[in-house]
Write a protein that binds this DNA or RNA. Structure first.
Lengths: 344, 344
DNA sequence: ATGAAAGCGCTAACAG
DNA sequence: CTGTTAGCGCTTTCAT
């Protein structure tokens, strides 16, 4: 037997409109009536159907969240933060993991439209979004007037990003200070381009030019970062090119790279200094603990939610795409600096 | 301007009923009419409103997924698998992370009810669910006739679980085979009880009785596992109790513990062998690579989805709670076995 | 094969 | 203050 506002009305001996009123608390209702109704609601354990509501309000109070993966700590944490924040504002979150598959991404976005989500937070691979901008599925959302906040630079859309250039600058500057001159870079997929630029920039500032032999990049989207880091480092070591430090586009890549270094008998940081990016949990836990650039993931999630909520407020007036850039900071740990041995 | 079936009907010069027919593809429609309508749909880029549909079909094609965290690789991967599988069956997934907070858990479940989800996969801390069974928010779902599949043993509910006893048995048996007799256990929150039982069982089978001084357990729910493992191991080492091996309730705990061991100048595996549980990605990447019990996370997700889908098929006939138990296997890596040195 | 019309559960005027 | 009623966008009889 399905429970509707009707049964509640009957139970309380009033009309459905009055029940609706106490449900929404907007109109005033006589105290005794209200109590009667509240009692009935409690007794029957009634919960109003959101779907019916949204047909009228023209808002579903649902937000779509697209991420490449959930099994990746970075995205997992970001999703967690975003979900929590949105929840606090009365929104439910539809979460989809694309695995950086453009087709899936497209389908998920379609379903967001069918579900009439009020807004979308787009954390997917911007590679796709940027490449064929006109055909980008994000375009669809725009047409429907659904606000979008991207978690990476996407031309023409609001976004929240970490300052990748500045962050990478910090990382490479740190290695430079340490006296390294032969610094490798491992990265290469779309999202990391900006980090590579930071790397190159830091070298330039020191009047050095990047040795292309020290730069390993993947043209394809990478899913298994640690594996990629492992292979890239193997390749680098095998190539025989001399280097004393490596800056990796993210922590997982760095960990894979360190694994490869170990197998090659190279000691971190004594022989090769390694710096990662993101500062995921495992970075501090790894042995050696990883020097990395801390991305303020919580703040990024918070900022994205805040921005989206503002967009929702403003209605569909299409404002100039806003870009919120958050600063990152260098966290120096064991993988880059030779410590005076504590034990021994 | 909102796009509805009405606009499509107008564009195609037919009634809304006919449009609905081609949308659902159930009733037959004359070929030429269908094509006309499909053209109109394509031209206007129309997507039917799911909310309106669900009011009639009495199913939302949405599933609620509750997990303690998303930033934890285990749950992140599980959520990823579940989301993907459900998606393939035409379901959208509402994901919520509870942070093992019972109040939040309760609220999320409430909202699942309001959203009229067709089913729920419950991956939260069963501590709460089991404790006050009568007041368990899961009870609410049951009343509403919403099928639930739990990702851990919850009395009275269908569930999919890894065989924690057998898995732990494997782990401790492995250490025993290696000749260890003083084996510590670090775990203790609700979900890990079963693992502790496996630990005790393995000892019993060898006519050994667990030394309670070697068992570290947290009575509270643990959120930051690696930190917990770190502190627990510190405590154990500081206590001065002799031991040569440690079995940890999960990989993150094991990693925290190894970190503590290192700081105490104890070498893994030479002085202390360590075994974890779950086989999350980082286990193979860590240095030393962690010996652990592999949980078939993908299979668990798949099984949960399959079970839920069956429940959905069967309708609300309340069947005997089914329990699907998946086997785990031992993965031997560097943290338990002293390797003949490769390098040097 | 197609159209008209009756709802699904709820909210929001509009009356009283 | 509260009841009546007209939809929201869609599916589904029931006619035609």
């Amino acid at each position: 037997m399905k429970l509707t506002i009707k049964e509640v009305a009957q139970e309380a001996g009033v009309s459905i409109a009055t029940v609706s009123r106490v449900l929404n608390g907007k109109d005033r209702v006589k105290k005794t009536t209200r109590e009667k109704i509240e009692a009935a609601i409690g007794k029957l354990n009634f919960k109003p159907d959101q779907a019916a509501r949204s047909m009228i309000n023209n808002q579903t109070k649902m937000i779509g969240l697209l991420v490449p993966q959930l099994s990746n700590e970075f995205w997992g944490l970001l999703a967690e933060v975003i979900q929590e924040q949105l929840w606090n504002k009365g929104y439910s979150v539809l979460i989809c993991a694309t695995g950086t598959n453009p087709d899936k991404e497209s389908m998920f976005l379609q379903s967001f439209i069918e579900r009439r989500v009020d807004g979308v937070i787009y954390g997917a691979s911007s590679a796709f979004a940027n490449k064929n901008n006109t055909e980008s599925p994000l375009q669809l959302l725009k047409e429907q007037g659904i606000p979008v906040v991207a978690m990476d630079q996407v031309t023409g859309y609001h976004c929240v990003v970490g300052d990748g250039i500045a962050g990478s600058l910090l990382a490479v500057e740190h290695l430079l200070q340490l006296g390294h001159t032969r610094i490798a870079y491992i990265g290469g997929w779309s999202v990391s381009t900006v980090r590579e630029l930071g790397y190159r920039g830091a070298l330039l500032e020191h009047n050095m030019v990047a040795d292309e032999a020290l730069i390993i990049r993947s043209t394809e989207d990478v899913v298994n970062f640690s594996q990629y880091g492992y292979q890239a480092m193997k390749q680098l070591v095998d190539s025989g090119t001399a280097f004393t430090a490596a800056f990796c586009a993210n922590d997982l890549v760095a960990i894979g790279a360190m694994r490869a270094l170990k197998e090659s008998g190279l000691k971190v940081p004594e022989q090769i200094a390694v710096v990662g990016y993101d500062d995921i949990n495992i970075a501090a836990l790894y042995d050696p603990a990883l020097t990395t650039i801390h991305q303020p993931i919580e703040e990024m999630g918070t900022a994205a939610v805040k921005l989206l909520l503002e967009l929702l407020q403003e209605g569909s007036e299409l404002s100039m795409p806003r870009k919120i850039m958050l600063q990152s900071k260098l966290i120096i740990r064991e993988s880059s600096v030779v410590q005076p041995s504590i034990i021994e």
